[in-house]
Computed example of a mutant assay.
Amino acid sequence: MTLEILTPDQTVYKGEVTSVTVPGALGSFEVLNNHAPIISILEDGKVIIREGKTEQIYQIKGGVVEVIDNKVIVLAEGVVT
């Protein structure tokens, strides 16, 4: 599936992933291939990206996530580096 992490001023990440865990308003949740369509508010927290056996972590400052047709878009207010 494809993942994009966007902030108001840049594209932070764009690529194919195995799964992604996001900090939802009611707790973290994982999105896998063929996930049901969803739109959710995100809290400040970690976005964990998995590509096979590798893992990348981004710390975001809130936002929203949209999942539809194996495309995940995270619109973050900001990313802490």
Results as ranks from 00 to 15, higher is better:
M1V: 10
M1Q: 05
L3A: 02
E4R: 15
E4S: 15
E4D: 11
I5A: 08
T7S: 12
T7C: 13
T7H: 13
P8G: 10
D9C: 07
D9N: 10
D9W: 08
T11R: 13
T11G: 15
T11D: 08
V12T: 10
V12N: 03
Y13C: 02
K14P: 08
K14R: 12
E16N: 14
V17S: 04
V17N: 06
V17T: 03
V17F: 08
V17M: 00
S19E: 11
S19R: 04
V20M: 11
T21S: 09
V22F: 02
G24S: 12
A25C: 03
L26W: 11
L26R: 13
S28N: 13
E30Y: 06
E30A: 12
E30G: 13
V31H: 00
L32H: 15
L32M: 14
L32S: 09
L32I: 14
N33H: 09
N34F: 13
N34T: 07
H35L: 05
H35T: 00
H35W: 00
H35E: 01
A36M: 09
A36R: 04
A36S: 08
P37V: 09
P37N: 11
P37E: 02
I38R: 12
I38V: 15
I38D: 15
I38L: 14
I39N: 13
I39G: 09
I39W: 13
I39T: 14
I41H: 04
I41A: 13
I41F: 01
L42F: 04
L42S: 00
E43W: 01
E43S: 06
E43L: 01
E43Y: 00
D44M: 06
D44C: 06
D44Q: 07
D44A: 07
D44L: 07
G45R: 03
G45E: 03
G45V: 00
K46V: 10
K46S: 14
K46T: 07
V47D: 04
I48K: 06
I49A: 06
I49Q: 00
I49T: 02
R50G: 12
G52W: 10
G52L: 11
G52T: 11
G52N: 11
K53D: 15
K53H: 11
K53I: 14
T54W: 15
E55G: 14
E55H: 13
Q56S: 11
Q56N: 09
Q56M: 07
I57C: 07
I57D: 12
Y58I: 05
Y58R: 08
Q59I: 01
Q59C: 10
I60F: 09
I60R: 00
I60E: 02
K61Q: 10
K61N: 12
G62D: 06
G62S: 06
V64P: 02
V64W: 02
V65M: 03
E66K: 14
N70H: 09
K71C: 09
K71V: 14
V72Q: 01
V72A: 08
I73Q: 04
I73L: 12
V74A: 01
V74F: 02
V74S: 07
L75C: 06
L75I: 03
L75D: 01
A76Y: 01
A76E: 00
A76F: 06
G78Q: 05
G78V: 11
V80M: 11
